[in-house]
Nucleic acid binder design. Structure first.
Lengths: 343, 343
DNA sequence: ATAATAGAGCTAAACGTTTTACTTAAAAGA
DNA sequence: TCTTTTAAGTAAAACGTTTAGCTCTATTAT
């Protein structure tokens, strides 16, 4: 492996001149030519370890997500990675398999690796560690979930209004008993999505039956389980809103297992992931999040901070989600009138 | 940030002694105590750049996959990452979005990052680059796809027999006109899966109708498209074998769009990903690959090579896949007899 | 008692860069 | 023409480690 020394010797200039040129400095035209030729001939590649040692930069961003097998997060990561790469940054991507302890360990690991910045989806009780990292001048961008009382840039989806809009669509189609399968009570997105459910009920003056609110754990199996619980209620809901992708999958499995006729017997709105929405019959209504935009915003924000630009810190980006209503939702206004006349 | 110098001073020993201790050397008990105390008090963390500069190791493995949004590959990556992390290696994971040019660029990027080894799923015409990398003593492990005439460790699934077994199940249930949706003709797994299809037909002395062989591109849309083409044949197949996850998804979409009754009108066997197999009604028969084992094997192999152990190079690991037959496959032996008696 | 050996510690050089402070040459100004 | 300014080049130190080769002390063998 040839070094900058070899290049300098070959080009007939000093090491400092080569280094200067390599880092965008001005050199005489003839020297530029010689240096370029030397680099070409010697197949010179800068040693990033040596450079990093001097500059105290690794040109690396750590990314920490709950799971590699969650298409929502990997889509975002793919976008982030591509943007950062273009700017010369590489990424170390870790998942913590939805494990609080592993989350801490992997975060430590990233710090030990001297990453210049971190983009992460927080999960457990990790705000102190994050604060320490920020205090040591390493920028952090939070993804998807906010942490209160933490001065940190964060990119969120507007979960409250996404949820609000979805449930509103159900209400407008005559549904009054609407089940919701939430995530864990202590998770940010879960709280927000439930809040949207509450608000829209309030705004339309529809009382909420506590039995219709089920708390899952954002995993497939809990979606499966909680949907059955909803169906087994004495007075079951006419529609169900499932608040993440995995649980939606679980709910669909339940529906298939029990041969429930969608939307005749039950209307359903799910969350995320358009692919699944397409293969389910009838087409599934969903709340979609702007995954590309989330990735872009996170990447741009960390790049800004890495540049040393701390304007508007801490920045909160709250991106809009979209509600796509398909055939999995039934308009029951008419039927309900029939029902009441039958009584 | 405190350095090894600070630790040495605090502990009252030389830098060399601290370094030796840090790297597993023996020191006097009292010195060990002092050094540990110093590390604790000063919150010392070894500077990996400096270490890397000296040792010429980055303790980093590059991983290159076709797509971050492909659950087959991300599952494998997750397994690899976790094993490598335990051994102190970090990973730089890249995807090339099924783009030959990007594949080359990202591979170069990994090399520029001085990774100690590479695990990758090859795609385009990249054997020369890989050979160069191996020649420069950087170990490479190929995943999922083999490249002929390249001396390189490789971890494969036994695609031929996986495909053979799947189609055999169809034949045993009386199917004689079996459609196959293959991947691109130039891709290794695609060729192997088609080979299995050919072999089993040969072994059961069933002639192959060329019209029943369709070449897709391993993307969702081609599965969608090719299934329709199969259905529109004058003499359509009674069963279809779809040879990867995305195309299976596409095929399911077609089936739903056209309200085709599975398995009454068509039997189907898909590929990979158990989650989807569960949400489809009736339950989908699939060929599953041992993703955990693939990841483990790849990780262990690269670790072995990084250790300098070159026994049995180049090693070829050929792991078995499994065929799960569910209700999406119909036994048409009886019906066929009826059919013929009706003629 | 002395020589040989083993074990631990130490000094100093090296890894490949960047960067500061300085030198030199050329261009501009008086 | 002589001085000042500007631009480019250079020597050398520094970044934080590892490691070869040496010294010193304590133990073992003779």
């Amino acid at each position: 492996m040839s070094t900058i020394k070899d290049v300098a010797k070959y080009a007939g200039v000093s090491i400092a001149t080569v280094s200067k040129y390599l880092n965008g400095g001005n050199v005489l035209d003839k020297n530029e030519k010689h240096i370029n030729e030397a680099i070409e001939v010697l197949d010179y590649k800068v040693n990033l370890m040596a450079r990093g040692l001097k500059t105290n930069k690794t040109m690396t961003v750590g990314i920490l997500i709950p799971s590699f097998v969650n298409i929502f997060f990997t889509t975002i990561v793919s976008n982030i990675e591509n943007i950062l790469l273009q700017k010369g940054y590489s990424t170390i991507i870790c998942d913590y398999r939805e494990d609080e302890e592993l989350e801490q360990k992997k975060l430590e690991f990233l710090i030990k690796k001297n990453v210049d910045g971190i983009i992460m989806v927080p999960y457990g009780n990790i705000s102190k560690q994050i604060q320490d990292i920020i205090d040591q001048e390493t920028p952090v961008v939070l993804l998807d979930r906010n942490i209160n009382n933490l001065n940190c840039d964060v990119v969120l989806t507007d979960n409250i209004n996404g949820s609000y809009d979805a449930v509103e669509q159900l209400i407008k189609r005559g549904h009054k008993r609407i089940g919701i399968i939430c995530g864990p009570e202590n998770i940010y997105t879960s709280q927000e999505r439930l809040k949207g459910y509450h608000r829209v009920h309030e705004d339309y003056s529809i009382p909420i039956d506590k039995d219709l609110i089920k708390y899952g754990d954002y995993q497939t199996e809990s979606g499966h389980q909680k949907l059955i619980e909803l169906l087994n209620l004495k007075d079951p809901p006419t529609a169900v809103f499932v608040t993440n992708y995995e649980m939606t999958l679980g709910a669909i499995i339940s529906i298939n297992e029990n041969n429930i006729n969608i939307p005749e017997e039950l209307s359903i709105i799910g969350y995320d992931n358009i692919q699944m929405a397409q293969i389910v019959q009838p087409p599934l209504s969903i709340v979609t999040q702007p995954m590309q935009e989330i990735g872009e915003t996170a990447a741009k924000t960390i790049l800004q901070r890495l540049r040393g630009d701390m304007t508007k810190f801490p920045a909160i980006y709250r991106l809009k989600s979209d509600v796509l209503i398909k055939k999995s939702v039934k308009n029951i206004d008419i039927q309900q009138k029939n029902d009441s006349s039958n009584i």
